[in-house]
Design a protein around this nucleic acid. Structure first.
Lengths: 129, 129
DNA sequence: CTAAGTGTATTACTAATCTTAATACAGTTA
DNA sequence: TAACTGTATTAAGATTAGTAATACACTTAG
């Protein structure tokens, strides 16, 4: 299900968070779909269950999944209103990166094109990155 | 010159890097303008010179400043061609954030507006964030 | 109720990072 | 030469991050 780089400087749990976020955003994991249990996934990836749990907790904090004790962890159906704070922090990050890109000579049109491409492929299934 | 949060989880040198990048991008620090010396700034902020140096080294690695032994550290005039690798990594980061924003319900138009606003204010002096 | 599955919490050990400090070296400039 | 620059090294302490082992709590199927 995942390919992890155990030798990377990037923590395992962070790699997990990124990959799962990607799967959720690209709707490969559907709303309310159950994720693998912490122990199952831990066995599969040959890492510690706590590491999985740390990733799941982070995803829950960020609002991408919800967990129920005894039942499992599931993809959070994305109601586009609950995340005002998160949207704001993302916008702040975006501003920083956009300013940096503009400073380095990237044209505004190019950035706009980037958005339009990503927006067009949204919901169109998987992406190749 | 700066306000640092010594109690923050964010390392001091990283706070410095961010602030200086901002000043450079917004052209408050002009090309070839000399930065405060590591020792001066260290005294001013009551922190260790090594911490300043770490920030300066990071800024130099990222291409925002250049340093000359015996002379000082200076804002790097931004020739908009040298940073192909950096531009690419910024674009990758942007893609991730844009996808996440779109997923959370932010409209593409809103993001485009964001870019246009930032682009319009570019070179127009300071910003209020 | 029991068994086997789920998530959760606590604790501990290890490793890495951050900050400071004390020196020393090297180049520039007046 | 003196006083300023950046740079490098080493070491120490503190904090944080990552991983692991274990126990607890809830849910579901029988």
């Amino acid at each position: 299900m995942f390919e992890l780089d155990l030798r990377s400087r990037k923590p395992i749990y962070e790699q997990l968070v990124d990959k799962l976020k990607e799967l959720i955003i690209n709707e490969i994991l559907k709303p309310d779909e159950q994720l693998p249990s912490v122990r199952t996934l831990a066995q599969e990836l040959t890492i510690n269950p706590n590491t999985i749990q740390k990733a799941y907790r982070e995803l829950e904090t960020q609002g991408f999944i919800y967990s129920q004790q005894g039942k499992g962890s599931f993809v959070n159906p994305n109601n586009e209103s609950r995340d005002a704070g998160k949207v704001n922090s993302i916008k702040t990050e975006l501003e920083k990166l956009i300013l940096e890109a503009l400073y380095l000579g990237v044209k505004a049109e190019e950035l706009i094109q980037l958005i339009e491409n990503l927006n067009a492929s949204k919901g169109g299934g998987d992406s190749n990155d």
